[in-house]
């Protein structure tokens, strides 16, 4: 293609070392992961409807833990996709560090901004 892809060979080389070391997941694994993701997505929607559907059954306590539940479920999906589909779990740790650092900064700033607007500014 273009010379901006100078390392096609180098990549093949690197790719092969990665294969040797960890072996990428097989298509079967990918499909299993997709099923897990489907289940979590369904879980999210179900969890959303629990409090209103179960008011009569004393499950109203569930309302306050909804937000953490969503965040945790989303985080699990996030980690699975990034780890398996984007191969971050198997790839060079350099990518993990680059992505992780940016994510850390983004999360910290987002948390601080939200806190400034909704809490401690008063």
């Amino acid at each position: 293609m273009s010379r901006d892809y100078p390392g096609a060979d180098a990549e093949a080389r690197h790719g092969s070392t990665a294969h040797d070391a960890h072996a990428h997941p097989t298509p079967a694994t990918y499909i299993k992961i997709a099923v897990i993701l489907l289940i979590i997505t369904i879980a999210e929607v179900v969890v959303l409807y629990i409090p209103s559907e179960t008011e009569g059954f004393g499950l109203t306590w569930f309302q306050p833990v909804l937000i953490p539940a969503f965040l945790i479920l989303a985080a699990i999906k996030f980690v699975i996709v990034v780890g398996y589909y984007m191969h971050l779990k198997f790839d060079d740790s350099f990518f993990l560090r680059v992505f992780g650092f940016a994510l850390l900064i983004a999360l910290t700033i987002a948390t601080a901004v939200i806190a400034l607007f909704h809490g401690i500014s008063l």
Binding site: G7, E11, F95
Partner: peptide, 12 residues
């Protein structure tokens, strides 16, 4: 082609 310092592909 140019091998890279980290062994990782530039585009990646």
């Amino acid at each position: 082609e140019h091998p890279t310092s980290t062994g990782l592909n530039n585009v990646k």
